[in-house]
């Protein structure tokens, strides 16, 4: 199980990295944490002419607050996200899901940018970035552009990134304080059969707003249950409303049958997990959002 030969490039700047990507015209990939890319290379699911190792580039592994926004460099590792007080305070959902990503060794290496570029349809990082309405900043030799997460995630392991582009930032808007996350696995640390992330804002009157419900493992990418969330806007998340919203989530899924479960099983799980996640959100004892 060895990778096919490739050229190893360790650029001195983002600009240099972008030039290599441009010259290689699709035959090169960025090497960040490598925890998905390296196994894919070694299993020969992918062959590349060049790997562009960005691990030494300064400044790409920082998380900073910019007003209401929280901005991540692409190289921020899962272990950092797990432990950083700034993330716990501003994006508690993102911090919570890290425990479900790989295992401690994987989390010491894997990065937020790498996970987004990988776009695993069961991935906890894409799932929570979708729930939290992140924006991806992508750079190429011809400039930078911002891509909404919902446009960024195209299909299984496929993103809107062009071959010459790399992720330079992940930006999160102010997140609602309340969240819930649930995941069904066959075994500890395995890829999810189904996972659900919900966020929302609870007003002082107990009414909920800004709800977002993201579902993983149920389609060729992680998806938002937009209609389900709309149905619950302004409610107090009473049981009947939750049950109805949970049922409605079936409209946005197109689950696969694979080694981890059948489509039928996933269809069964989705309303159950959406209902449980919303109940958990409601019964959370955090104070209301300002």
């Amino acid at each position: 199980m060895k990778s096919a030969p490739f050229t190893y490039v360790r650029p001195a700047s983002v600009e240099e990295a972008l030039h290599v990507l441009d010259e290689q015209a699709g035959a090169a990939r960025i090497l960040a944490g490598g925890q998905s890319l390296v196994p894919m290379l070694q299993m020969r699911l992918m062959q590349l002419d060049a790997l562009v190792d960005i691990n030494r580039l300064p400044g790409l592994d920082e998380v900073r607050a910019a007003g209401a926004e929280t901005i991540f460099g692409p190289l921020v590792r899962y272990a950092t996200i797990e432990r950083l007080p700034l993330v716990a305070e501003r994006l508690p959902l993102l911090q919570c899901v890290m425990r479900f990503v790989g295992d401690p060794q994987i989390r010491n290496r894997g990065t937020i940018g790498g996970s987004l570029a990988q776009a695993d349809p069961t991935g906890e990082v894409p799932l929570s970035c979708l729930a939290l309405d992140a924006t991806i900043v992508a750079a190429s030799v011809s400039g930078t552009r911002e891509i909404l997460i919902d446009d960024f995630l195209v299909s299984s392991y496929t993103t809107a990134l062009e071959p010459g582009e790399m992720i330079t930032e992940i930006r999160f808007p102010l997140a609602p304080h309340h969240f819930a996350f649930l995941e069904r696995n066959r075994k500890h640390n395995d890829f999810a059969v189904v996972n659900v992330a919900v966020v929302g804002r609870r007003g002082s009157d107990g009414g909920w707003s800004d709800l977002r419900i993201a579902l993983g493992g149920v389609s060729d990418r992680v998806v938002l249950a937009v209609e389900s969330a709309a149905l619950l806007e302004g409610t107090t998340l009473e049981e009947d409303a939750i049950a109805q919203a949970a049922q409605l989530a079936l409209d946005v899924i197109d689950p696969p049958t694979d080694v981890r479960g059948t489509a039928e099983y996933r269809r069964h799980l989705v309303p159950v997990y959406v209902r449980r996640a919303l109940s958990k959100l409601r019964d959370d004892h955090e104070p209301f959002d300002a």
């Binding site: 190893y8 490598g34 196994p39 290496r109």
Partner: peptide, 12 residues
């Protein structure tokens, strides 16, 4: 830091 040495190239 603990890492899996099969998922890191020696060059890194």
């Amino acid at each position: 830091q603990a890492v899996k040495s099969c998922l890191m190239f020696a060059a890194q």
